[in-house]
Design a protein around this nucleic acid. Structure first.
Length: 201
DNA sequence: GTCTGAACTTGTTTACATCA
DNA sequence: TTGATGTAAACAAGTTCAGA
C-alpha cells in the first residue's frame, strides 16, 4: 500500500474537514497529485523545534480541530509539511484525551473511595443500632416475665395497682403506669415506644 | 532499557462526483 | 431527478520506531 503521506502530499485543499460538527468540505479535485517526491517523505523522524512546538500548542489551545486553511497557514509559518501539522494535531488530540481520561479516573476513584468510607460508617451505625434494639428487646422480655410472675402469684391478692407499681418497678415506674397497662392489651411494644420508657441511647 | 512523541496503519465516516 | 457507487479527505485508535 502506498504510504498515506505520499497520497496526501499536495492534496490538501481549502476544505473544512470536521467530524461531528458539519462543515462544508473541500471541493473535489479532478487531478490527483502523485507527489510521492521529496515533500511527502518525512523520512527520518525528527523532533520539532521548541518554537514550532510552542506555536502548535498555542494553536491547539485555541482550537483542537484543525481546519484545512489553518493547517496550511500553520505549516507555512512553521516551515513544516501540512501533513506533519495534521499528524501533530492528531497525536495531540490523542494525548489530550488520554490525560482527560486520567483526570476523570482520578475523580471517580476519589468518589468511590469516599463512598466506600461512608458505607463502612453506615454499616457500623446499623450494627450499633441493632445491638441497642436487641438490648431493648431483652429488657422488654425481662420486664414482661417479671410482670407475668407477679400477676400470677398475686392473682387473688388485695394489692392495688399502685402498690404493685412502686414495688415492681421502683424508680423506673412511669408516671402513667395505669394507662400503660391499659394500652398494653392492644399494642404493648408500640405503647412502650410511644411513651418513651426506654431510652435507646 | 525506558519514555516520549513523530509518523504510520487500519477502519470508519462523510461530502462530493459520476453514471445508469 | 434519483439512487448506487466510487473516491478523497478527515478522524480515532492503535502501532512502530527514532531519539533523548
Amino acid at each position: 500500500m502506498a504510504a498515506n503521506s505520499e497520497l496526501y502530499a499536495g492534496l490538501y485543499t481549502q476544505a473544512e474537514p470536521q467530524r461531528g460538527e458539519w462543515k462544508p468540505r473541500r471541493s473535489r479535485k479532478k487531478n490527483k497529485v502523485s507527489g510521492s517526491g521529496s515533500s511527502g517523505g518525512v523520512g527520518k523522524k525528527r523532533k520539532l523545534r521548541a518554537e514550532q512546538a510552542m506555536l502548535l500548542e498555542q494553536s491547539f489551545g485555541f482550537e483542537h480541530k484543525l481546519a484545512s486553511e489553518r493547517k496550511d497557514r500553520l505549516a507555512m509559518e512553521l516551515g513544516l509539511e501540512p501533513r506533519q501539522v495534521a499528524v501533530w494535531f492528531q497525536n495531540r488530540r490523542a494525548r489530550w484525551k488520554s490525560s482527560k481520561l486520567g483526570e476523570e479516573y482520578s475523580k471517580l476513584r476519589a468518589q468511590h473511595d469516599s463512598a466506600v468510607l461512608e458505607k463502612c460508617r453506615l454499616e457500623a451505625e446499623v450494627s450499633k443500632m441493632k445491638d441497642q434494639l436487641n438490648d431493648a428487646q431483652k429488657e422488654i422480655q425481662r420486664l414482661s416475665e417479671r410482670f407475668d410472675n407477679f400477676s400470677s402469684s398475686s392473682q387473688n391478692s388485695s394489692l392495688t395497682m399502685h402498690a404493685m407499681d412502686s414495688q415492681l418497678l421502683g424508680e423506673f415506674a412511669p408516671e402513667n403506669f395505669e394507662s400503660l397497662f391499659y394500652t398494653m392489651d392492644n399494642s404493648y411494644i408500640s405503647s412502650i415506644e410511644s411513651t418513651n420508657i426506654y431510652n435507646l441511647e
